[in-house]
């Protein structure tokens, strides 16, 4: 068992929303609610959930692009929430992000080589000559060739742009990569190329991934462990195998039932897929209004993410009996 690279403890983020113009009313939106999660060194932790469930907010807090309302995050034992500017800069060398949309996350006025080189300049790594060779080396690693160096982002295809984004993220040799829907904007034949590349790079550089996606096929292919998020909370956390073969939480089961199977002969199992992810309950389980197994206690008490043995965690009062 590897040691954890990052420990997330009781993390909470509340956004204040105001609605109404004349008589503005304030409303709290709990985007991330009491999350506890360890990311082990060398693993790929998959994070799945529907839009608005808080996956990207969690990623932003980990990168310290948002401040949490409560809780803390330890990176190699140090609390990143209390970092000052100098510490933060050093931290960000170790934790990098790959974005969903390679079109909007690259500076259109910089060449490919310039984009990959920028982090080296910002963090003052190596001298000019060495930087050139580092950039060239990295371009080859991600499957771009030296002739691409002087091109601008608009001259690349979607898949090549994503390679460029990956090169930029890896140039500082970080330890943790947060990949936020890295293949969602790509066509399926290109998606496979990028997923293979991410696997290769993980081996070559000894990376740890937090891999965020809504695509259950992609998550299954990439992850060692998987966390399922629903309305700001982690409702299930297990190994890849257990999530797909033996899911405990009713929401995990609904997600799996809803995912289309690439085989016309497999008729889907008939778990009712219903309702939408809307926070309407003040008390009890967040999933109760969509749940087929709901009983009295579900509207009274919020189920904690409890240990169910064999490194399986599930936040459901009825896990095990249903």
């Amino acid at each position: 068992m590897n040691k954890p690279l990052m420990n997330i403890r009781s993390l909470k983020k509340v956004f204040k929303l105001s609605s109404g113009f004349i008589r503005a009313q304030e409303r709290n939106l709990v985007a991330v609610n009491n999350i506890n999660l360890d990311i082990d060194e060398g693993e790929t932790l998959g994070l799945v959930g529907e839009s608005g469930c808080g996956k990207s907010t969690l990623a932003k807090i980990i990168l310290r692009l948002e401040k949490p309302s409560a809780g803390n995050i330890l990176f190699k034992g140090k609390d990143i929430i209390s970092f000052d500017r100098v510490q933060l800069k050093a931290y960000r060398r170790n934790v990098q992000l790959i974005f969903q949309d390679p079109y909007s996350s690259l500076n259109p006025r910089k060449t490919a080589a310039g984009i990959i080189r920028e982090p080296l300049t910002i963090h003052n790594v190596a001298d000019n000559k060495k930087r050139d060779s580092l950039v060239e080396e990295m371009m080859l690693k991600v499957g771009l060739s030296a002739q691409h160096a002087k091109r601008y982002p608009h001259e690349f295809s979607g898949g090549q742009r994503q390679r460029l984004g990956i090169a930029r993220a890896l140039i500082l040799q970080p330890q943790l990569i947060i990949a936020d829907e890295p293949v969602s904007a790509l066509d399926v034949s290109i998606q496979a190329q990028i997923l293979n590349l991410l696997k290769d790079l993980k081996k070559d550089f000894g990376l740890t991934y937090l891999f965020i996606s809504h695509d259950l096929n992609v998550i299954r292919h990439m992850s060692d462990r998987i966390a399922i998020m629903y309305l700001g909370e982690i409702v299930e956390l297990s190994s890849n195998h257990d999530i797909y073969e033996n899911p405990l939480h009713p929401y995990t089961r609904m997600l799996l039932a809803a995912a289309p199977v690439c085989n016309p002969r497999i008729k889907k199992n008939v778990i009712a897929v219903r309702g939408e992810a809307v926070a309407e309950n003040n008390r009890g389980c967040a999933f109760q209004n969509r749940c087929a197994y709901r009983t009295g206690i579900c509207s009274e008490q919020e189920p904690p993410l409890a240990d169910r043995g064999n490194n399986r965690y599930c936040a459901c009062h009825r896990a095990g009996e249903i």
């Binding site: 898949g159 399926v188 034949s189 290109i190 998606q191 496979a192 293979n196 292919h221 690439c262």
Partner: peptide, 25 residues
């Protein structure tokens, strides 16, 4: 065939890599 084989969880080969269609459209 290339499209079918590049879907994760449908046909990964033994090493956990996906088959890909080289190049682009």
């Amino acid at each position: 065939r290339g499209l079918m084989e590049s879907i994760p969880a449908r046909c990964p080969d033994q090493n956990g890599y996906l088959k890909t269609i080289p190049g682009s459209v």
